[in-house]
């Protein structure tokens, strides 16, 4: 059962991921990205990280992508035209892509040689309680630093936007 779900949602994630790049219209790309995030949330859920799954949907699919779509609709962005393709770029691009994949898989094999295979549902500590406890004890400093960083970013955005209006 778990394997079937993993395969289904893994395939959906990959197909949507390719679709993000291939689609001509920004709205279609954005919707494909929502598909990627939704299927990733299901994969988190399968691994036992319930809070991560919910946060993935609430934050990424529910807030950030709504903002993306809002901006795309507001700017009324049209379809992209396919540019001229050169044969050389295709040949070099594909071979470089294959090389990158090869390098990545080699590095993963090399660096995480001792890591076992993933078991669905074997992971404990993904509940809201566990995540909350870890955030406010072990990782308190990084957590607070991140929130201050986000606050600074918000203030910076407001300051920049104000200058535009004046």
């Amino acid at each position: 059962m778990n394997t079937i779900f993993f395969l289904v949602f893994g395939i959906i994630a990959v197909v949507c991921g390719i679709s993000v790049v291939v689609q001509r219209h920004p709205i279609s790309s954005a919707i494909s990205l929502i598909g990627v995030m939704g299927s990733l949330a299901v994969l988190y859920l399968q691994l036992g990280a319930e809070f991560m799954a919910a946060a993935q949907v609430i934050v990424y699919a529910g807030a950030i992508m709504v903002l993306f779509i809002f901006v795309i609709m507001l700017l009324n962005a049209g379809s992209e035209q396919a540019g001229k393709t050169s044969g050389l770029a295709r040949v070099v691009g594909v071979s470089l892509l294959v090389a990158l994949f090869g390098l990545l898989s080699y590095l993963v094999q090399r660096l995480f040689a001792g890591a076992g295979t993933v078991h669905f549902g074997a992971f404990r500590g993904g509940t809201v309680r566990d995540v909350g406890r870890t955030l406010f004890t072990t990782y308190l400093l990084p957590f607070e630093v991140t929130s201050i960083l986000i606050l600074i970013a918000i203030l910076g955005a407001i300051v920049l936007a104000r200058k535009e209006i004046d």
């Binding site: 709205i27 919707i31 809070f51 919910a54 949907v57 609430i58 529910g62 709504v66 779509i69």
Partner: peptide, 22 residues
């Protein structure tokens, strides 16, 4: 009965805007 029931509702209702926006 999900043990993240409240989060589930928040997540699903936050997706509701897509129907209207799209």
């Amino acid at each position: 009965d999900l043990n993240i029931g409240v989060l589930f509702i928040v997540a699903v209702s936050s997706l509701g805007v897509y129907g209207i926006a799209l």
